[in-house]
Write a protein that binds this DNA or RNA. Structure first.
Length: 587
RNA sequence: GCCCUCGUAGCUCAGUAGGAUAGAGCAGCGGCUUCCUAAGCCGAAGGUCACAAGUUCGAAUCUUGUCGGGGGCGCCA
């Protein structure tokens, strides 16, 4: 089904075609800035007035006179300098909701131009344990993947893990030294505390010159393909990835692991190709690619180094190899990187280099999505009390523990009948929802201040509130012993009360939101929408301001209101699902 | 020094394809409950949109400059 905004827009586009006399004039249809003005507004007349040398209100009148199907509108009127305020008929809103209700996909059409998309996100360094710094990329990447899939795109979720580099020499040497049995039997390698393991190895590396030298030798050994070193290295990677996937599974994140080392065989050719095409040259022993528009601090051209003077490769080389692989082997038409925004310049340069050498056809889009830092209450990067890195595992554990306190307290205060299992399940979902929602409800590009109290608050724009809103809707179904699925199939909706209409209007916008998010890849648009939806529902359902559902005056009205409930539940569940937040039937 | 980014209510944040009286939550204030989950709803209050100039019928939004925060700037990722 065409989205609501598209429906209105199409009307005004046609009218403009007549008024302006040619195609393509932007009708500037927006949601009404103020509810009192109606549902939508068109701001086109003022701009055109100048162009056509006419009075803007006159043009607005002409536009209105040429609307092809006025039966859609309750009223359209000119206001102020030449705004056209648009109010849709209740029946239009109602009919569309009925269509949504009867559709398995909420009548949301897939993107007419599906593109195979590679999303590179999460991608931790396997030498260490995942920490709070991986939160945003992991959550955001997953949401983007879900939204694009929902819009009908196929998606490869790539975990471009750091599984190569000098720190692995250190870790290998530590295993050689302290767990020699692993050399015989790599399968036996297991480590409970990965972070502790890294720290111990690092301590040895820093304190002991012999260890340091031995670690460097292990790097060389590994690079030369030594069988034992390779086995031990692989055993370590496997163990580290196991730790990651425990977290991914808990978060509901799916990822395909393909580490940096996967691209090792291609790196020499990357450098050779750049040299052959004269796009790279040696400078101070390093192989550099110079790209237009990049300068260093002295105003000189800034190179993208693809081979170090010691002959080694760096992440630029790997990223270039990965782009080529993703385009050629994975057939990506769009490649999205979700990393913190400090890497913006790096990706700009890598993208420019990949384009320059012709590895990325014009119809393939490269996109870096940067995000800001997670800050503590002191506005400095979020750390533990003693200044250490916050492990992701601990962060999630704390979220659940804190949620549990709240749930138990509420249970006691309200005398709720919840089993221990239910309390545990609720605490887990509420805790995760709190973390995810607070992250996703902030603008990606800016830093955001992490606050347990705010994210776990049951009121306001929070994850727990959203879960509560859903549970409250579902409870109506239980109370009235009605099957929402059944209600949806036979929905006949009437919108008489203002709160019904308001709810209907917000429900109608879901398609627009999905479309916009599919283009702009901004999870915050979903959270803002869902919050508006739950507010609209609260108003609809409120004892004083809203309507009674189960005690509606007649059966038709009751069914109509139940359908609004069922649809609200469906949209909330779908929307939260896009955010990778699992709903609770009861809380 | 150059580049990027941010500066909106006491606090946390929305709002940048230019649009009407700049929004929400929290905190604080005033109401609402014979309980369809009040974890809610309604209302009032709260702003020189960092500052200055410019473009425009119209600027939080675009341009320029200034101030302030954060980040980046040749072999880490």
């Amino acid at each position: 089904m065409q989205t609501l905004e598209a429906l209105v827009k199409a009307q005004f586009e046609q009218a403009l075609r007549v008024v302006v006399g040619k195609e393509g004039a932007d009708p500037m249809v927006r949601l009404a800035g103020d509810e009192r003005f109606g549902d939508f507004q068109s701001n086109a007349a003022m701009g055109l007035a100048k162009q056509l040398q006419k009075n803007p209100r006159e043009i607005a009148q002409q536009i209105m006179d040429n609307l092809p199907d006025t039966s859609l509108f309750e009223k359209t009127e000119i206001a102020g300098p030449g705004f056209i305020n648009i109010t849709l008929k209740n029946s239009v809103l109602a009919k569309r909701l009925e269509q949504m209700a009867k559709s398995s996909s909420l009548a949301i059409d897939p993107d007419p131009k599906p593109r195979h998309t590679v999303i590179d996100f999460s991608s931790p360094n396997l030498a260490k344990e995942m920490h709070v710094g991986h939160l945003r990329t992991t959550l955001t990447g997953e949401v983007i993947a879900r939204v694009l899939e929902f819009r009908g795109h196929s998606v490869d979720r790539m975990n471009h893990v750091g599984d190569w580099g000098t720190q692995f020499g250190m870790l290998l040497q530590y295993i050689y030294e302290h767990q020699p049995e692993v050399l015989q039997n790599p399968e036996s390698f297991a480590v409970e505390n990965l972070e502790g393991f890294y720290k111990k190895a690092k301590a040895r590396f820093d304190e002991d010159e012999d260890f340091k030298n031995a670690a460097r030798e292990k790097v060389v050994l590994l690079q030369s393909g030594d069988a034992v070193a390779t086995k031990v290295w692989q055993a370590f990677l496997k163990e580290s990835l196991k730790h990651c996937h425990l977290i991914y599974d808990e978060l509901g994140v799916r990822l395909e692991d393909k580490g940096e080392s996967f691209y090792n065989p291609f790196l020499a050719d990357v450098v050779k190709t750049f040299k052959d095409k004269a796009l790279a040259k040696e400078d101070d022993g390093a192989v550099c690619v110079y790209l237009e528009g990049f300068q260093n601090r002295d105003g000189e051209p800034l190179p993208l180094i693809i081979q170090k003077k010691d002959g080694g490769y760096n992440y630029a080389t790997t990223d270039l190899a990965a782009i080529r692989y993703r385009v050629n082997e994975q057939n990506a038409k769009r490649i999205i990187y979700v990393t913190d925004n400090r890497q913006e310049q790096h990706f700009k340069m890598v993208f420019a280099a990949a384009r320059a050498i012709g590895w990325v056809p014009d119809d393939v889009e490269l996109q870096h999505i940067g995000y800001g830092m997670v800050l503590g209450s002191d506005r400095k990067p979020f750390k533990t009390r003693d200044g250490g890195t916050v492990r992701l595992k601990d962060l999630l554990g704390e979220a659940v523990a804190r949620a549990q306190e709240v749930i138990v307290r509420n249970k006691e205060e309200r005398g709720q009948d919840l089993s221990d299992d239910q309390v545990n399940d609720i605490a887990k979902k509420v805790g995760f929802a709190a973390i995810k929602y607070s992250d996703l409800s902030h603008n990606l590009s800016s830093d955001y201040q992490f606050s347990w109290d705010k994210m776990l608050a049951m009121d306001g724009n929070t994850g727990p509130y959203m879960l509560y809103a859903y549970a409250r809707v579902k409870s109506i179904g239980r109370k009235g012993q009605v099957d929402f699925d059944q209600i949806l199939k036979t929905a006949a909706i009437n919108l008489d009360h203002p709160t019904e209409r308001q709810l209907a209007k917000v429900l109608n916008r879901f398609g627009d939101v999905c479309e916009t998010v599919g283009q702009e890849l901004r999870p915050i648009l979903i959270t803002e929408y869902l919050y508006q939806l739950s507010k609209a529902f609260s108003g609809f359902y409120d004892k004083k301001a809203g309507v009674s559902v189960l005690e509606a005056p007649d059966q038709d009205t009751k069914n109509s209101r139940l359908a609004l409930c069922a649809l609200t539940a469906a949209v909330l569940k779908t929307g939260l699902g896009l955010l990778s937040i699992e709903v609770l039937e009861e809380m």
